[in-house]
Protein backbone atom coordinates (compact mmCIF):
# COMPACT_ATOMS: atom_id res chain seq x y z
CA UNK A 1 0.00 0.00 0.00
CA UNK A 2 2.88 2.37 0.83
CA UNK A 3 4.44 1.56 -2.55
CA UNK A 4 1.15 2.15 -4.36
CA UNK A 5 0.55 5.51 -2.68
CA UNK A 6 4.10 6.70 -3.39
CA UNK A 7 3.92 5.58 -7.06
CA UNK A 8 0.57 7.34 -7.60
CA UNK A 9 1.94 10.49 -5.97
CA UNK A 10 5.17 10.29 -8.02
CA UNK A 11 3.18 10.00 -11.27
CA UNK A 12 0.92 12.94 -10.31
CA UNK A 13 3.91 15.14 -9.42
CA UNK A 14 5.71 14.16 -12.65
CA UNK A 15 2.67 15.17 -14.73
CA UNK A 16 2.47 18.46 -12.80
CA UNK A 17 6.22 19.01 -13.36
CA UNK A 18 5.79 18.37 -17.10
CA UNK A 19 2.86 20.78 -17.27
CA UNK A 20 4.88 23.45 -15.44
CA UNK A 21 7.81 23.30 -17.91
CA UNK A 22 9.80 25.26 -18.98
CA UNK A 23 9.20 27.84 -16.20
CA UNK A 24 9.76 25.39 -13.29
CA UNK A 25 8.72 28.04 -10.78
CA UNK A 26 7.24 25.54 -8.32
CA UNK A 27 10.34 23.36 -7.66
CA UNK A 28 8.27 20.31 -8.69
CA UNK A 29 11.36 18.25 -9.42
CA UNK A 30 11.97 17.96 -5.65
CA UNK A 31 8.88 15.82 -4.80
CA UNK A 32 9.35 13.94 -8.10
CA UNK A 33 12.87 12.79 -7.24
CA UNK A 34 11.97 12.10 -3.59
CA UNK A 35 8.97 9.93 -4.46
CA UNK A 36 10.52 8.12 -7.46
CA UNK A 37 13.63 7.30 -5.41
CA UNK A 38 11.54 5.90 -2.55
CA UNK A 39 9.18 4.08 -4.95
CA UNK A 40 12.09 2.28 -6.63
CA UNK A 41 13.49 1.25 -3.24
CA UNK A 42 10.09 0.04 -1.99
CA UNK A 43 9.68 -1.86 -5.25
CA UNK A 44 12.83 -3.83 -4.39
CA UNK A 45 11.40 -4.41 -0.90
CA UNK A 46 8.16 -5.68 -2.46
CA UNK A 47 10.01 -8.06 -4.81
CA UNK A 48 12.06 -9.46 -1.89
CA UNK A 49 8.91 -9.90 0.20
CA UNK A 50 7.10 -11.56 -2.73
CA UNK A 51 10.03 -13.97 -3.10
CA UNK A 52 9.55 -14.98 0.56
CA UNK A 53 5.75 -15.00 0.82
CA UNK A 54 4.64 -15.89 -2.70
CA UNK A 55 1.03 -15.05 -3.59
CA UNK A 56 0.22 -14.45 0.09
CA UNK A 57 1.95 -11.09 -0.39
CA UNK A 58 -1.13 -9.87 -2.29
CA UNK A 59 -3.61 -10.71 0.48
CA UNK A 60 -2.35 -8.86 3.55
CA UNK A 61 -4.17 -8.68 6.89
CA UNK A 62 -6.57 -5.77 7.26
CA UNK A 63 -4.54 -4.29 10.13
CA UNK A 64 -1.34 -4.39 8.04
CA UNK A 65 -3.15 -2.78 5.14
CA UNK A 66 -4.43 0.09 7.28
CA UNK A 67 -1.00 0.59 8.86
CA UNK A 68 0.69 0.62 5.43
CA UNK A 69 -1.89 3.09 4.08
CA UNK A 70 -1.39 5.31 7.11
CA UNK A 71 2.39 5.12 6.53
CA UNK A 72 1.95 5.94 2.84
CA UNK A 73 -0.12 9.03 3.66
CA UNK A 74 2.43 10.09 6.29
CA UNK A 75 5.23 9.70 3.73
CA UNK A 76 3.22 11.85 1.33
CA UNK A 77 2.69 14.50 4.03
CA UNK A 78 6.43 14.52 4.79
CA UNK A 79 7.21 14.89 1.08
CA UNK A 80 4.80 17.82 0.81
CA UNK A 81 6.45 19.51 3.81
CA UNK A 82 9.93 19.04 2.26
CA UNK A 83 8.60 20.42 -1.04
CA UNK A 84 7.04 23.53 0.55
CA UNK A 85 10.19 24.24 2.60
CA UNK A 86 12.34 23.87 -0.56
CA UNK A 87 9.98 26.16 -2.46
CA UNK A 88 10.07 28.85 0.23
CA UNK A 89 13.86 28.63 0.67
CA UNK A 90 14.62 28.73 -3.09
CA UNK A 91 11.78 31.18 -3.75
CA UNK A 92 12.07 30.97 -7.58
CA UNK A 93 9.48 33.72 -8.12
CA UNK A 94 11.22 36.05 -5.66
CA UNK A 95 8.00 36.52 -3.68
CA UNK A 96 9.67 36.44 -0.25
CA UNK A 97 13.09 37.83 -1.14
CA UNK A 98 11.68 40.93 -2.84
CA UNK A 99 9.41 41.83 0.09
CA UNK A 100 10.48 45.00 1.87
Amino acid sequence: MTLLISVFAAVCFTVAWYKNQPQNTLCLSTPCFLLWGASLMWLVDAVVEYAHLGVAYFSPEAADLVNDAFLGLSVLALTLVVWVVTLLVKDPRGVLHNKK
Binding site: L35, G37, A38
Partner: peptide, 20 residues
Protein backbone atom coordinates in the same frame (compact mmCIF):
# COMPACT_ATOMS: atom_id res chain seq x y z
CA UNK B 1 22.41 15.90 -9.42
CA UNK B 2 19.40 13.81 -10.53
CA UNK B 3 21.07 10.68 -9.11
CA UNK B 4 21.90 12.52 -5.88
CA UNK B 5 18.28 13.62 -5.46
CA UNK B 6 16.93 10.14 -6.22
CA UNK B 7 19.28 8.48 -3.72
CA UNK B 8 18.94 11.11 -0.95
CA UNK B 9 15.18 11.36 -1.41
CA UNK B 10 14.63 7.62 -1.41
CA UNK B 11 16.94 7.05 1.56
CA UNK B 12 15.25 9.86 3.52
CA UNK B 13 11.74 8.47 3.01
CA UNK B 14 12.93 4.92 3.76
CA UNK B 15 14.59 6.14 6.94
CA UNK B 16 11.22 7.61 7.93
CA UNK B 17 9.60 4.22 7.21
CA UNK B 18 12.19 2.50 9.44
CA UNK B 19 11.48 5.04 12.17
CA UNK B 20 7.76 4.26 11.78
Amino acid sequence: RWLNKLLWGGSFLLAFEHLW
